[in-house]
Structure formats: structure tokens, C-alpha cells
């Protein structure tokens, strides 16, 4: 009974990571920018999960939101416009030990990098992808994006945009092998934290679209959602997010939705009258490309040498040795 293993004792000297351990440079986003809320939620996740900063990588594209990695005190890769996903895939394939996060804007993901988005869903590699969707190009100073609402006046569409906005939820839920899709709004931290945490714990490619305010260029874009919370439909479930009592008093429009039901998820995704928030779809059983492809064992130099010699034998001019 007194034979207590030291390993079972809590090491009170063990350093715990605090929020500060994940805080990099001071964000240079505009005050009131929704990216700040996403950053806070992600830093909180890292702290709650005690992710070793050196084992965590944030990969981004180009745009306001893609400055994200600079504001984390982890490893970061601020890449090219639209190309965050394939860079992140290369990292994850080579280094399964790393926690990989991707931050993209709506231009990054839904415009210049669309091909990568579609294929990332299909590859279903283990990582969390957050699309900061403010419906506008911010860094290049107010051009319409694919998710801009129809009629939005911008510097490239002075008469207003011509087409209906692309619906990222429908795209996600329409791609083979989609395994996790959630929508959040950055101005409700509890739900955002819950969704990002569940995305982190998902096996496979967890895609989170976060509606994000741009106070500088489109300050009123999300007013209908902010002024009337009933325009948001919260999808709650024991396997999804749980609405706190306090939040429930504000977000009275809520329904129970089982995230394993993709047909129902597609119905919610296609609704124009409300914006569904919560985990629309989750299936941890979808095969992951990285798990399938990654070598199942360690390969020593001797094993590589053996393969090379086998191949040299195969191509040997001397047939007798190639048969050997």
C-alpha cells in the first residue's frame, strides 16, 4: 500500500505552459478585428491541451489572417497565398509528431487555393484548418472575395458584386472523405473555444469556418447576425457543442443535430434564412491519407542499402547476379 511508484506522483515542479508561452509578437491587426478572437481561442486551446510549443506548427497563406503564426510563440510557416494546405500536408506527412494547424483567409482558401482545399478534404490528413472568413480581401484593401455577399461594393466591384456568394459549407460537405466540418462566429468565444477544441481532438482533417468581422472594410457585414441572434441557428448535441445556459438565453434559435448525419448537415448548410453554427459533420472513421501512406516502421541505413543493392541487381548487366 505504501509501495507508491514515483511515476504516479504529481510532479509539482513540472512546468505548466501558460497562455503567455503561446503569445508571440503583438498582433498588428486592426482593433476590433475578429482575428484577435480566433487567436485568443487558439492560444487557450494550446494552453488547455498543454501543447509543447516546439511541437506545434501554424501554417498560413497570405492575407490579414495569415499573419497568425507570427503571433504564436510556436513554430510557424507563413507561406504563399493559397498554398498553406499543401505545405502543411508536407509537414504532417514527414512529422506525425507535430501538431499542425492551418490558418487561411477566404481568399486564400476559396479563391486562389481552391484546388488545395478540395483535395485537402479528400486527403483527410490529421490537422486543424481554420478559415477566417470575413468575406473581403483586407490586406490588399477591399476587393470582393468569393464569400462576399451579392451586391457588396468593393474596389473591384464598385457597382456591387455580381454573383451569389460561394457557400463553403456546401463545398466542404460535398467532397468525398470530408470528416469534420464546423462553423463558428468569432464573437461568441464559448462556442468558438468548444468548436476549436473538438476540431483539435478530431482524427482527420478538421475544417472550421469562422465568420470574422473586418471593422475596417466591411464593418456592417455581420450586423444582421449581431443585432438579431436569431439569425444564427446553434446546432447542439451530446456529440457536438453544448450551449451554456447563459448563451442559450441569447441564442434562442437552437436545434439538436447529430454530427454523424451528413444529409442533415447538408440541409443546414444549404439554408439561406439562418447561419448554422456548431459541428455540422464529424466522422472519425474516414481513412486518413497520412496514416495510410506513412511508413509503418523505422528504416535503417542498412535497410536502404539492401533495397539499393536489390535494385542494382535488378538492373545488372550480368543476368546471373540479377537472378541471385
Amino acid at each position: 500500500m505504501f509501495n507508491v511508484s514515483l511515476e504516479n506522483l504529481v510532479d509539482i515542479d513540472l512546468e505548466q505552459y501558460s497562455l503567455q508561452d503561446y503569445q508571440g509578437s503583438t498582433p498588428r491587426w486592426c482593433s476590433g478585428c475578429g482575428d484577435n478572437a480566433i487567436l485568443s481561442a487558439v492560444q487557450k486551446l494550446c494552453r488547455d491541451e498543454q501543447l509543447p510549443p516546439e511541437k506545434t506548427v501554424f501554417v498560413s497563406g497570405i492575407g490579414c489572417s495569415s499573419r497568425f503564426p507570427h503571433y504564436m510563440k510556436t513554430y510557424g510557416f507563413h507561406g504563399l497565398h493559397g498554398r498553406a494546405l499543401p505545405i502543411a500536408q508536407g509537414i504532417k506527412m514527414h512529422r506525425p509528431d507535430l501538431h499542425v494547424f492551418v490558418n487561411m483567409g477566404d481568399g486564400d482558401c476559396c479563391s486562389i487555393g481552391t484546388a488545395h482545399w478540395i483535395h485537402a478534404l479528400r486527403y483527410n490528413m490529421n490537422m486543424v484548418a481554420i478559415m477566417h472568413d470575413n468575406g473581403i480581401y483586407g490586406l490588399t484593401k477591399k476587393q470582393a472575395s468569393p464569400t462576399s455577399p451579392k451586391g457588396l461594393v468593393s474596389n473591384t466591384t464598385p457597382q456591387g458584386t455580381y454573383m451569389e456568394a460561394l457557400n463553403p459549407a456546401m463545398v466542404n460537405l460535398g467532397v468525398t472523405n470530408v470528416s469534420f466540418f464546423a462553423q463558428a462566429v468569432e464573437w461568441v468565444p464559448d462556442m468558438l473555444n468548444d468548436i476549436i477544441s473538438q476540431a483539435y481532438h478530431h482524427r482527420g482533417f478538421a475544417f472550421v469556418r469562422v465568420l470574422q468581422r473586418c471593422p475596417h472594410f466591411t464593418p456592417t457585414m455581420f450586423d444582421p447576425l449581431l443585432s438579431n441572434p436569431n439569425n444564427i441557428l446553434v446546432l447542439e448535441h451530446e456529440n457536438g457543442i453544448k450551449l451554456s445556459e447563459a448563451a442559450g438565453r441569447i441564442y434562442k434559435n437552437h436545434e439538436s443535430h447529430d454530427p454523424s448525419d451528413i444529409q442533415k448537415a447538408r440541409e443546414y448548410a444549404g439554408r439561406h434564412d439562418i447561419v448554422p453554427v456548431g459541428i455540422l459533420y464529424r466522422n472519425p472513421e474516414v481513412p486518413c491519407y497520412d496514416e495510410i501512406r506513412r511508413p509503418k516502421r523505422v528504416f535503417t541505413p542498412e535497410m536502404k542499402e539492401a533495397v539499393l543493392n536489390r535494385e542494382f541487381d535488378k538492373f545488372s548487366v550480368d543476368i546471373d547476379s540479377s537472378e541471385g
Binding site: 498554398r83 508536407g90 509537414i91 484546388a115 483535395h119 523505422v298 536502404k304 536489390r310
Partner: peptide, 27 residues
């Protein structure tokens, strides 16, 4: 694969290069 390697056929030339760069970056 016999030597522990992977050939990744990416969705396009750009993704192939990005994948290789991401992998290089990490090791």
C-alpha cells in the same frame, strides 16, 4: 516504399512543390 520513402502525387504542380517544401521545412 521498400526503403521507407513516399511518392506523393499531388493535385497539381504547385501543391507538389509546396508539399516537398513543407516536408523539407520539417526535417
Amino acid at each position: 516504399e521498400d526503403a521507407g520513402g513516399i511518392v506523393h502525387q499531388a493535385e497539381d504542380e504547385i501543391a507538389a512543390c509546396a508539399f516537398a517544401i513543407g516536408s523539407s521545412y520539417a526535417g
